[in-house]
């Protein structure tokens, strides 16, 4: 088994939302697809997420949120990522994020949003095709 380049992914749940089924399932799928996955758990502030992304030299940050607080939290996360100089990280999101909000999120740098019903391999393929190693 080779120890060649592995895609390192942080899966985080920003804010107070406690529904982690999707985050955990995606984390397992990414592991099964050969990636190194760090699941940060619940109640992550933007600062904590960005700190993890820096220390772990993450290639991908996956944000899972179902509470509607993404409009407040995501721009802050992107701002901090930029401040810390890790803006090459591929940032994707999932959960309950209304379609109408997606253009604004993409504007601040969220690469893609995966809504309910997305097959797991779609997320895997997207990461493999878009990650900047």
């Amino acid at each position: 088994m080779s120890s060649s380049r592995k895609i390192r992914v942080i899966i985080a749940k920003p804010g107070l939302d406690g529904h982690d089924r999707g985050a955990k399932v995606v984390a397992r799928a990414l592991r099964d697809a050969g990636m190194e996955v760090i699941y940060t758990g619940l109640r992550q502030t933007p600062e904590m997420i960005v700190r993890a992304a820096v220390d772990e030299a993450a290639d991908v940050v996956g944000l899972s949120i179902l509470s509607g607080a993404h409009t407040a939290l995501f721009p802050r996360i992107m701002e901090l990522l930029k401040k810390e100089g890790v803006e090459n990280v591929l940032v994707i999101a999932g959960g309950i994020i209304p379609e109408d909000d997606i253009p604004e999120l993409k504007k601040v740098g969220i690469a893609e949003v995966f809504g309910p019903g997305t097959p797991l391999n779609e997320i895997v393929d997207y990461i493999k095709s878009n990650v900047k190693l």
């Binding site: 088994m1 050969g34 190194e36 996955v37 760090i38």
Partner: peptide, 28 residues
């Protein structure tokens, strides 16, 4: 995993207390 090559690095999640301490660096 010896089969997929992937890994769930599950220790950081248990060390949240120090996640914002600038004098602590943690790597999985």
């Amino acid at each position: 995993s010896p089969f997929t090559g992937g890994a769930l690095l599950g220790d950081r999640i248990r060390m949240q207390e120090h996640s914002l301490d600038d004098d602590v660096f943690m790597r999985s």
